[in-house]
Computed example of a mutant assay.
Amino acid sequence: MYQRILVATDGSELSNKAVDHAVRLAATCGAELLAATVIPVYPRGYYDGSLALHEDEIARIKQSWADIGRKHLDVVRDAAAAHKVKVTEVMAESDLVSDALLELAAKHKADLIVMASHGRRGMSRLLLGSETQHVVTHAKIPVLVLH
Score class of each variant (00 low, 15 high):
residue 18 A to T: 06
residue 9 T to W: 04
residue 29 C to G: 00
residue 57 E to I: 13
residue 100 A to Q: 13
residue 96 L to P: 03
residue 141 I to R: 11
residue 116 A to R: 06
residue 101 L to N: 07
residue 81 A to D: 04
residue 10 D to Y: 09
residue 106 A to W: 12
residue 67 D to M: 09
residue 114 V to D: 12
residue 93 E to K: 14
residue 38 V to G: 01
residue 83 H to G: 07
residue 6 L to R: 12
residue 50 S to H: 05
residue 118 H to R: 10
residue 106 A to K: 14
residue 6 L to Y: 11
residue 76 V to F: 02
residue 57 E to H: 13
residue 128 L to Y: 00
residue 142 P to K: 12
residue 142 P to C: 07
residue 34 L to Q: 04
residue 46 Y to W: 02
residue 56 D to R: 12
residue 73 L to C: 11
residue 103 E to L: 06
residue 18 A to R: 01
residue 88 T to L: 15
residue 17 K to R: 11
residue 124 S to G: 00
residue 12 S to D: 11
residue 38 V to E: 01
residue 63 Q to D: 14
residue 127 L to H: 02
residue 126 L to Y: 11
residue 100 A to M: 10
residue 105 A to P: 02
residue 59 A to I: 14
residue 56 D to C: 05
residue 109 K to C: 07
residue 143 V to W: 00
residue 84 K to M: 09
residue 145 V to G: 09
residue 33 L to C: 08
residue 71 K to L: 13
residue 74 D to A: 15
residue 73 L to E: 13
residue 122 G to L: 01
residue 64 S to A: 15
residue 33 L to I: 06
residue 7 V to G: 10
residue 146 L to I: 08
residue 11 G to H: 09
residue 67 D to R: 05
residue 85 V to I: 13
residue 23 V to G: 02
residue 91 M to H: 04
residue 2 Y to D: 06
residue 140 K to P: 06
residue 63 Q to A: 14
residue 33 L to V: 07
residue 139 A to R: 08
residue 97 V to Q: 02
residue 79 A to H: 01
residue 119 G to Q: 06
residue 142 P to E: 00
residue 36 A to N: 10
residue 112 L to T: 03
residue 133 Q to S: 11
residue 104 L to G: 00
residue 132 T to C: 01
residue 94 S to H: 11
residue 32 E to I: 02
